[in-house]
Design a protein around this nucleic acid. Structure first.
Lengths: 337, 337
DNA sequence: CACGCCGATTACATCGATGTAAATATGTCG
DNA sequence: CGACATATTTACATCGATGTAATCGGCGTG
């Protein structure tokens, strides 16, 4: 098996210097039409491809960015990844996709590790990262954070207004006459994560409607998967008084909850309402279909990529910015009967 | 902003040669404990990180492989990607994930394009690739195909026995007394794709049970998404005689079908049975839960990575092999009343 | 026809890390 | 103590591509 041809081989084949071949490849303007086509032919004939390592070593840029999300089999992240790849593609970038499992150590690796220094920058959707991890990060490596806003000013950030989104969802349930609304996946203490923010929005809505807050209705979960939603329903149903609505902090939880409710002989919206977050495709086709807060994923992806590219190109030392993208409440069967 | 330190800077700081630093980084055995720790300190002090481009240029391998799938928001591929990443991780490889959209041009790019020459090898799940695309491919670039077996012998391949799987699923429906089984996503002609093979298994089961085959029951779809399953149900229900079972060639189709049936006032398994393929998580939590053919995704991922690694390391010119991994029928509510 | 100009092409150094082989240090044994 | 084996460290070349600056060649002009 012949080794891969190098630029030098192409040069010899075409009877020119290596640099001329490079000039052709990079569309340098001062190359005569004749040499240009001769080189093109040589490239074709030898099946030559640029060696990215060599180019990167010389140029200092890879044209690749890393997208690090907790898990791909969480539909929200898969859908988001799709948008990010599309946005990157439009700008001539390639995406290296990475799963962190939501584990701090691997989120750190996304910031500092192999990928981070290999690609030109990182878009990270953190779950466990601590504020100090960001404070002490190597600012030479461009980063954009999605979702959680760990520490204002520590890095560019893109996300929806989680407090407002949760408030609107809760208002919707209140407007339907629901008064005992459980927050599945909610959190009162702990890190300033999405769960905290959404729980705050929920409380704001309650207060505005003068509905007393009951800490018992905040149901914590281990993770944001289907089975956690199902388990949470188990816990909720063991209470003396059954809530009349579930505000689930993502769609997987909500869909798992719908399933568990079904098994318990209950149905939304007949017996209680169910609302989720993320607007994943499964929620459009579930029975009942799922009311959800739909973030503008395309806008998130687009902002993230363009912010990152700014940082990369400007070696940006400007202050970190915070981009808030649109969301809207999509009312479907699970709270719309 | 200080430039990133190079190995040379570390060497100067520690008072040794660059090569010694390299030796420490690569855990070369003959380095005295004293220099080792001095170098470690220097690395720490300067915040040094290996420059992958330099290393790769020298070593010739990237330690990265490409995984190219049609779409990440098809749950099966997202779940598969997760397994592939885990398998790669165990072998010290990083995965570059790529979406082809199922478009031939981009599947070709996965074989020959940027990624293919950049990473050490490619695992490709093709949809539109033609046999000749594989016949003419550059065999210097290691490739493993998943799912469709385009052309025996053209490249290593990993998949389940689609014919047997479809036969078993059909036998299951026949055993439940179903006699009019529609194949949603089925195909009688066209490429030797998964759909063809599964349709063949379906027919084999019918023949064995002496149930006449009705070509009208083969319902083609545009794509294998939820909405296509829903649409197919619309078509099926417009027929004079309603089938008593739907064999959907993936779970998304099946779940879309369940939803459409619900809207039509029908329910599985009461009015008809529904079976899918892939065993995606959504099918475990749907109402009703979904009977499905579960491929051993972990095994697929593991075989694929290890086959690819073989090719890479042995510059394998051996004949292409074909790995068949296990599958099993998981019977749930949608055909288990 | 000599000169200057500009477009086309090339020689050479360089990006950062590491393999090779040689040089140097350390240790062992008779 | 000297010879020799072994352990540690180093100089140098190299991986492939491209930026810099120098060279080459053709053309118009005085």
């Amino acid at each position: 098996m012949a080794p891969r041809p190098r630029i030098k081989d192409v040069a010899e084949y075409a009877g020119v210097s290596p640099k001329t071949v490079s000039n052709v490849i990079n569309d340098y303007e001062h190359v005569s039409e004749k040499t240009r086509s001769a080189v093109r032919e040589a490239i074709e004939a030898l099946g030559y491809r640029v060696n990215i390592a060599g180019r990167q070593l010389r140029k200092g840029r890879t044209g690749m960015i890393t997208l690090a999300v907790p898990e791909l089999d969480v539909a929200y992240f898969a859908e988001l990844a799709k948008h990010v790849m599309a946005a990157a593609d439009r700008r001539g970038l390639t995406v290296l996709l990475h799963q962190t499992g939501g584990v701090r150590e691997r989120e750190l690796a996304a910031l500092h590790g192999f990928d981070a220094q290999f690609t030109d920058g990182t878009i990270l959707s953190p779950l466990s990262l601590l504020p100090r991890d960001l404070a002490t990060r190597d600012t030479r490596l461009p980063v954009v954070l999605l979702g959680e806003r760990s520490q204002p000013g520590s890095a560019d950030h893109v996300g929806i207004d989680n407090v407002a989104a949760a408030r609107e969802a809760t208002e919707h349930l209140l407007a339907r006459g629901r008064r005992s609304i459980a927050v599945v996946g909610g959190a009162l203490t702990g890190r300033q994560g999405t769960d905290r923010l959404r729980t705050r929005g929920y409380r704001e809505a309650l207060r505005a409607a003068r509905v007393p807050f009951d800490a018992d209705l905040v149901v914590p979960v281990d993770a944001f998967h289907w089975q956690d939603g199902a388990r949470a329903v188990g816990a909720v149903l063991r209470r003396d008084v059954r809530p009349d609505a579930l505000l689930c902090l993502n769609d997987h939880l909500a869909l798992g909850a719908l399933r568990a409710l079904h098994e318990a002989g209950l149905a939304a919206p007949r017996d209680l309402d169910v609302v989720g977050f993320d607007d994943i495709e499964a929620g459009r086709f579930s029975v009942p279909s799922l009311t959800t807060v739909a973030p503008d994923k395309a806008a998130i992806a687009d902002s993230a990529v363009s912010l990152l590219l700014d940082r990369i190109e400007r070696h940006g030392t400007e202050d970190a910015t915070d981009h808030v993208v649109e969301h809207r409440l999509v009312v479907r069967e699970s709270s719309g009967g």
